[in-house]
Amino acid sequence: MNELVFFINNVVISGSVSGSIYAIGAVGVTLIFSIMRFAHFAHADVMTFGAFMVLLLTTAFPAAGASIGVPTALLMLPLAMLLTAGLAVGIDKLFYKPLRAHGVKPIVLVIASLGVTLILQGLIRLFSGTGGQSLYVDDRKEIFRLALPFEGVRAPIVVTEPQIYLFVITIVAVVALHLFLNRSRLGKAMRAMSDNPELAQASGINTNTIVAVTWMIAGALAAIAGTLLSLDVTFKPDLSFFLLLPIFAAAIVGGVGHPYGAIAGGFVVGFAETLAVFNWNILLRPFQDSFPSWLELPSNLAFVGTEYKIVVPFFILVAILVWRPTGLFKGKVIS
């Protein structure tokens, strides 16, 4: 049983944590792709920017959260979402819109977004330095240890406070997105434009509004994902290059342009990562006695070492591109 608890701690919980973060990030990428038709490489840096805004606000008012009993960082999240949404719209106005007006190929927009990546990264590093910083400036990270009511189980299930917030916020964000896309006028217009831009424009949908709204949603979601990640670990200015590949893998696994697919893809990638680095020997050890004597299990039965974690999303990406390039849920144009 202790082994099972270990499995839950190391795979189920940490897989859902990274899965939620990838899912929220991938939704933004996939929405941008479905409206603007290009892979937005700067998304991971928009996430970092959101987290950085939270860090700045939290450092400015460290005691604000204590009055209502939540960490200050969480209280500042809505404000940071607003700022990041503004940033995303601003980036589009400044960098992508002129290029779109020129009618360039989508790949030129991809290169421009790499330029934006570097600009954001440079700015964040310039102001925050290169080291890691905790978002818990004045508060304390609570750690909950849930002991299981079984005989002989000594190890508790460990969940930290930011992880609980993370699950709650992810569920809220997904439900809100679902309601927006299916119930609101703007959401329906967005889906129409993603399906057929010319037809959407011909039927009186203001495409400029849709583009702006898409950037705002993607920016706000990116701020959530970046903040939750930084709450769980620490804030680092160079988070983005480690996030880019899992997020794109998630978006492609789910079918590009498919928000629900991106959520599923995020969890697929998150769990695949944790399952691949998990040492399976721990689960097999209790059955060691029942194995034939010639079979001696090596002490490390992980598929890849933690240092090669990045191989996992890449492997998933390659596999999906080879076998099912449209993704699990039939995605958009790929040729």
Partner: peptide, 12 residues
């Protein structure tokens, strides 16, 4: 596939 995919794969 679209050229975006090549960019993602090479980055990876």
């Amino acid at each position: 596939l679209r050229s975006d995919y090549l960019a993602i794969a090479t980055l990876g």
